[in-house]
């Protein structure tokens, strides 16, 4: 029994280091024209036929407070279940007209109840509130686990990308950026910059 577990651990270690050996990272800056800052853009690797990856396990939260969605943009991988919470002093009714969100409507609620939705289609999901039209937030459902969101300066970093050739795309609520093709080496960093306009 003990031997098996040791062997298993060794195998796991070998696997992890092997993965590390053949994984690179993508970094760069996204400039978002016409926006207050460069934050909230989602950079992701488009899916190609050969890609396989496990289903996501994390269940990130989208909150509502002071008549705002928090965070304003939540990037998730396809298949992710998102928890919707209301930490506001008034009731909200979240819904989306976006096909990637299956046009869900979570109904009206206030208080501690947590509602969920599983996002099985990739793409933009705009979040709206039936009671407060000015509320707007986004969930971007990325097709692969390789995605990152820019900080206010526009910097992003996608780690542990297996070596290979990919198309990298950007989503932003403020416009479009031209997709770029990159080759990720077995080790090292590739810099890719984008302009959203």
């Amino acid at each position: 029994m003990r031997i098996i577990s040791i062997a298993f651990s060794i195998a796991l270690l070998v696997l992890i280091s092997a993965l590390n050996l053949v994984a690179g990272e993508i970094t760069g800056t996204v400039t978002v024209k016409g926006a207050a800052d460069n934050g909230g853009a989602v950079v992701y690797i488009a899916k190609n036929k050969d890609m396989k990856f496990p289903a996501p396990v994390q269940e990130p939260a989208m909150n509502q407070k002071n008549l705002k969605f928090a965070p304003h943009v939540l990037p998730v991988m396809v298949g992710t279940t998102v928890k919707f919470k209301n930490n506001d002093k008034v009731a909200h009714n979240i819904f989306t007209p976006s096909p990637a969100g299956d046009m869900f409507n979570l109904g009206t609620w206030k208080g501690d109840q947590v509602k969920t939705h599983t996002f099985n289609k990739s793409g933009e999901v705009v979040l709206l509130c039936n009671l407060h039209p000015e509320m707007e937030g986004f969930i971007y459902v990325a097709p692969t686990p390789y995605f990152a969101m820019t900080d206010a300066t526009g910097r992003y970093k996608i780690e542990n990308v297996p070596a290979g050739s990919y198309t990298i795309k950007v989503w932003s609520e403020h416009g479009n950026a031209r997709p770029q093709k990159v080759k990720i080496p077995e080790k090292g960093t590739v810099t890719v910059n984008f302009t959203v306009k």
Partner: peptide, 22 residues
């Protein structure tokens, strides 16, 4: 339907961000 029963007042006499804090 989550929208069933909503009245005019629910949207037109409700809080907006510029009024906060509540």
């Amino acid at each position: 339907d989550p929208n069933k029963g909503q009245q005019c007042q629910d949207c037109h006499m409700n809080w907006t961000q510029d009024m906060l804090p509540y």
